[in-house]
Amino acid sequence: MELLNIFIKSIFIENMIFAFFLGMCSYLAVSKKVKTSVGLGVAVIFVLGITVPINFLLNKYLLQPGALKWLHPSLADVDLSFLTFIMFIAVIASMVQLVEMFVERFAPALYASLGIFLPLIAVNCAILGGSLFMQQKGFTHLSEAFVYGLGSGIGWLLAIVFLAAIREKIAYSNVPAPLRGLGIAFIITGLMAIGFLAFMGIKI
């Protein structure tokens, strides 16, 4: 039940884009076509689903105050939490690289469609944001972190695909010239965020 709650919450209520504006750069840059945005969205789900649990373990057994106790009792006072940012980003950058190599080697078809997006993802705020929020929420189980990562990714995918679909249509509308492109994308995203407010407060 708790897991389902985290899942639903991370997709709809605490949506990476509509509630926290994370990953906006690639969101705005890639959302011109539905097809490419699906590709990027799937890559984000993939990477979030992998890095959030890994960073969870890293946080639990290395970074938290007193996390090194399992190595030796005398290390219980060591607090490495100040290294959080650097460790998380290192994990993300290397995981993205690793995933890229694996996909290229074992699933060339997938690589052809995902390939160009993967390197972009290392510096996507949504990925680091996912890990940082995971740390802040203080999950106790690996499964919670995994579900949270997955849910956040799906929420991101939904947001980018919706926007891309609207932008494809809006190409035929008569938008005032100064608003064309970026300006209208911002305003549409804002309106979509208002729509997503309807999910606020849902509890399962």
Binding site: P178, F186, T189, G190, L191, I194
Partner: peptide, 12 residues
Amino acid sequence: PAMALITVGIII
């Protein structure tokens, strides 16, 4: 959050 996006849109 929504209004931040719309405000940026208007600034643009």
